[in-house]
Design a protein around this nucleic acid. Structure first.
Lengths: 233, 233
DNA sequence: TAGTGGTCTAGACCACAAG
DNA sequence: TTGTGGTCTAGACCACTAC
């Protein structure tokens, strides 16, 4: 674990264990620097991480303050990558509908930058949040990066498997989303009326060397598609 | 202008003017360091800014690579704060329906942390993207931070006015959004059928000293609510 | 004016990717 | 092994807030 990560974790604990409320002031940089025995840059890197998470705010000339937490029931779009939420305030489970190796469809070939006649893993799942239907997820994985995947693995977190078992380093993602209505098949799976509003969410993920390895399309049950984004100017 | 900002701008120009395509490699850190005559930390800060914008990716041990731009027609949720898009690839205009000082409604008092009987500026606008109806925006501003606002100012960018004229430094925002359907009034204003799907977007903005000054609620025409988020692991 | 966070530097050393 | 980006340091100096 890197030094700035452990410092960040220590500050998280400081906030949660004290506990500090929104608006409360943290010790100054100079104090924290002595307390954690690190350089100013390392401390600032840790604080900026926490700032991006929405946990605190550094006010130039004034101090470091605890920020409002998100409202309950909303998912932090950044810390909940693949829905493994930061504070584990939700329980995510999956039912795997499909998991097979197929010839890549045209659109997937484009998104994953594949040659003609390339194979991909195709996974379709229904995901539940605290037992309620959250979304339908359709994913395609580049077999050059993810050489093996099966029904059992797909029941858990595929991203955890890719990172921890396959030792693939995830670099970055392109996320696109828009609002639409459910078609009959989607409505049936989500147990919603056809034509219900929905959030369509697309994500292409790349390894840290820039190879696209995942093309996913998620259709949300709008009752549970509540998102929070902590934005820093 | 800070050094790391001007370096970031110079690298943007380098990419757009050369022009460099997705996947193209930039010069190494050592080269850029000499080229711009800055320290490694300053250079890294500039590169991390560009990484957050989705313009490039730094691959540890390999190099710095240009990233795919977003698809046309999508708004970058981060660089398009208040819809003043980075590349000005869209033209945003507004029709002001209301702009008046009123007693703060209960919910607004909570969000803006106001005392009883506090006044706020209430602004309701229809916003257009390239002439097409984009959204209905309802905003409330803390009069302690924004002491004056009128119809003419509300026709332009209120955030630009707050930052540039009032010299208020914006610190951070809490953003919440979910999917829903339009009620009759909203549908009428957006010229959509009642019950059409929509994105409801809420934003509370704070000054850099932590004072909440804006509580906004935006209802999007779903035909134009297409968003892009460049995500960095 | 005192105290706070922000910028910037030069340089040592570490971790990773690619040949 | 070479070259790349990432971490970490100590310290000078700047910019802002609050008294």
């Amino acid at each position: 674990m890197l030094k700035y990560e452990s410092v960040a974790q220590a500050i998280r604990r400081l906030i949660y264990d004290t506990p500090l409320q929104a608006g409360d002031k943290l010790p100054s940089l100079a104090t924290l620097k002595v307390q954690f025995q690190v350089s100013k840059s390392t401390l600032l890197k840790a604080l900026h991480m926490l700032e991006k998470e929405g946990l605190l705010h550094q006010a130039h000339g004034s101090g470091i303050y605890v920020r409002n937490g998100k409202r309950p029931g909303y998912m932090n779009l950044f810390t909940s990558n693949g829905f493994s939420d930061d504070l584990n305030d939700h329980h995510i489970t999956s039912t795997v509908l499909n998991c097979e190796k197929i010839r890549a469809p045209h659109r997937v070939k484009t998104h994953l930058q594949l040659q003609d006649e390339a194979d991909v893993y195709y996974v379709k799942r229904i995901r539940y949040i605290d037992g309620a239907i959250l979304c339908i997820e359709t994913s395609y994985f580049n077999v050059d990066v993810v050489p093996f995947l099966d029904h059992t693995l797909a029941e858990g977190s595929i991203f955890d498997y890719i990172e921890q078992q396959l030792k693939i380093k995830i670099g970055y993602s392109d996320i696109y989303f828009n609002v639409d209505t459910l078609d009959a098949d989607e409505a049936n799976l989500l147990k919603q009326p056809t034509g219900s509003p929905t959030l369509r969410y697309e994500q292409q993920s790349y390894t840290n060397t820039g190879i696209p390895f995942d093309d996913s399309h998620i259709v949300f049950n709008h009752e549970h598609a509540h998102f929070y984004i902590p934005s820093v100017k």
